[in-house]
Design a binder for these strands. Structure first.
Length: 561
RNA sequence: UGGUCUAUGGUGUAAUGGUAACACUACGGUUUUUGGUGCCGUCUUUCUAGGUUCGAGUCCUAGUAGACCAACCA
């Protein structure tokens, strides 16, 4: 009964208003239109969640359209990666489209433009054209070729298409207004000559449409009702509408472009160009490096589709410039992982613990909860023996009042096992601890129901049996940028920004149940953080990537004495 | 020396002329066989100045600040 009044964001309000004004719900259609010139990143994830989310909410189809109008930058590899990423996020597109599917229609329309005197061939250099274009504060001037005859334009444009000219010698321009306050309306370029192989159309074309001439028309051909893009395209809207005016058939849906602010994330870069630079300059191992903000990087890092979708939903949509703190993304990741990640024991910085009163050669397989958050609890067995590894930092000889873990003379519980008491330590010549000796209370086994097993001790620590533990490579990631992400459009030197300690590779020991860990399964190494298994083809070893740390307060508490 | 867009706690987003709220962060308390989780709480908000109105975060005007616009990129 209590249908919560959901507040609509401004995008939903636009749609609601259109529906109220007579647009039929079954005419709704959205699209996500990436250029296949790189991998998708967390910013695209927002756009994907917006468009596909609207599709789900309104039960409307969403097209996946590749904006492949520039063969110089686009590759099939990127098309494949984009499809994989959108699908991984959990969305299904209605039609898979390509701007290149429309090259013929666009060409035919361009001929009509010429015939109607709406377009002309300009034969100046790009420098001359740029000069005539003026600046945001000064008007442009007409090209000397602006008033060529229709016949000459038709002839020239056909010869451009037929490959008779070199790149840069001629372009087709829309004839609008060189003095327009919006620079995009100053006779924008519709076609340029590019003798490049296109990943889909091969060598069929050597004239390629520009974004502005292809995008709205693609929306129109696909009968997209709402075309959402980022705010930097806002000045393009006037041109989008002008092009549509020339070809629009009133019996059809006229697509509407609306803009929202792109999302910026602190401590990271959200720009394909900069991500490409990181890859090319080898600051990272590739587009799917777990430190990258790409969707494939986040996948390898262990972020889940649910977490990313919740993040997108939480940050919402608006029109103001923003810088979202990564801690919100990390919260979303923890929130999801807490529910689904099995708790397992692992020791990353081991020190040997010997239980002196535990029989030599004896082993027990103890029952352990997989995840206390589970609705129906499941269990696994973990091996216990006389010699264990524990985390080096879980032991201190001298007890601080706020230190709840193992010290000499105090009791602590080994998770899922027994209560032990620290007795003494063995040190090497340099005074480093090499072994800790302790005794255990045989009646204190977890779940045994004995009085001793009910006893409260102030700390619980984690362990693995040395004889049974499996060595694993563990990759600990830190933020790629230690302070703020480099911003602006100018060339940047990443060396000034990159955190040199963003990757640490260590060898840890994990409980044997992880031997069968599948690629990208999630785990909580108890008290250490969330991790995922990453199969590395170059090694037989188990490899784990640290996804995100736990929200840990002990360091803070202990530092306050 | 132009045009367009934007302005709500440290961060992000709501409030659609009628009690400024939700989440994150930070901090405190509590539960806990994870210093995790859960639960409870605290701190911190409408850019400025006018105007319209019984009433303005919301509408209007001006100012201020930020963003975008001069690729044969998208």
């Amino acid at each position: 009964m209590s249908t919560e009044e959901k507040s609509l964001n401004f995008i939903e309000q636009i749609i609601e208003e259109d529906l109220k004004n007579g647009l039929s719900n079954d005419k709704l259609r959205f699209r996500f239109p990436p250029e296949p010139n790189g991998y998708l990143h967390v910013g695209h994830a927002s756009a994907i969640c917006l468009n596909f989310g609207l599709g789900i909410d309104y039960q409307a189809p969403v097209n996946l359209r590749f904006d492949d109008t520039n063969p110089a930058k686009e590759e099939q590899e990127y098309v494949d990666a984009i499809k994989r990423d959108v699908a991984w996020l959990g969305y299904q597109w209605d039609k898979e489209c390509y701007a290149s599917d429309y090259f013929q229609e666009l060409y035919d329309w361009a001929i009509e433009f010429i015939k109607k005197g709406k377009a002309y061939v300009d034969s100046q250099t790009s420098e001359e054209i740029a000069k005539q274009k003026g600046t945001p504060t000064t008007p442009g001037t007409d090209s000397p070729y602006r008033n060529r005859s229709v016949e000459e334009n038709l002839d020239l444009f056909e010869r451009m298409k037929n490959g008779e000219f070199k790149e840069g010698t001629h372009i087709l321009r829309a004839k609008i207004d060189m003095k327009h306050t919006n620079m995009l309306m100053r006779d924008p370029i519709m076609y340029r000559i590019l003798h490049k192989h296109h990943h889909r159309t091969g060598d069929k074309w050597c004239v390629y449409p520009m974004y502005d001439w292809a995008h709205g028309e693609s929306d129109y051909l696909e009968q997209i009702s709402h075309s959402f893009c980022t705010l930097e395209f806002l000045p393009h809207r006037e041109l989008y509408d002008w092009f549509l005016d020339q070809i629009y058939d009133a019996t059809k849906i006229r697509p509407k472009q609306r803009e929202f602010a792109r999302r910026n994330l602190s401590h990271t870069v959200v720009s394909k160009r900069k991500l490409l630079q990181l890859v090319e300059e080898k600051h990272v191992t590739g587009w799917d490096d777990p430190r990258m903000s790409t969707i494939s990087g986040m996948r390898r890092r262990g972020y889940t589709p649910t977490a990313i979708r919740n993040f997108a939903k939480t940050i919402g949509i608006a029109k103001r410039t923003n810088l979202i703190d990564v801690s919100l993304l990390e919260f979303c990741v923890r929130e999801d992982l807490n529910k689904i990640a099995p708790r397992v024991m692992a020791v990353l910085n081991p020190v040997k613990l010997v239980i002196t009163n535990y029989p030599e050669g004896q082993e027990e397989w103890l029952e352990a909860e997989n995840n206390p958050e589970e609705a129906v609890m499941t269990y696994r067995k973990v091996p216990f023996s006389r010699e264990l590894f524990i985390e080096r930092e879980d032991f201190q000889e001298e007890a601080n009042k706020k230190f709840f873990r193992l010290t000499l003379g105090t009791e602590v519980r080994l998770k899922n096992a027994y209560i032990i008491k620290g007795e003494n330590v063995v040190k090497d010549a340099n005074g480093n601890i090499t072994e800790i000796h302790c005794t255990y209370d045989v009646d204190s086994r977890s779940g045994s129901g004995t009085e001793a097993s009910q006893r409260k001790v102030k700390g619980t620590i984690h362990w693995v049996s040395i004889a049974h533990a499996i060595p694993a490579e563990v990759r600990i990631y830190d933020r790629l940028f230690s302070h703020e992400s480099p911003d602006g459009n100018k060339e940047i030197d990443f060396k000034e920004f990159i955190n040199p300690n963003s990757l640490e590779v260590i060898t840890g020991y994990v409980e044997p149940s992880l031997q069968t860990a599948q690629n990208l399964d999630h785990f909580q190494f108890q008290r250490l953080g969330y991790f995922c298994a990453d199969k590395d083809s170059s090694t037989e070893k188990l490899v784990f990537n640290k996804t995100v740390g736990l929200r840990d307060t002990w360091a803070k508490v202990e530092s306050k004495e």
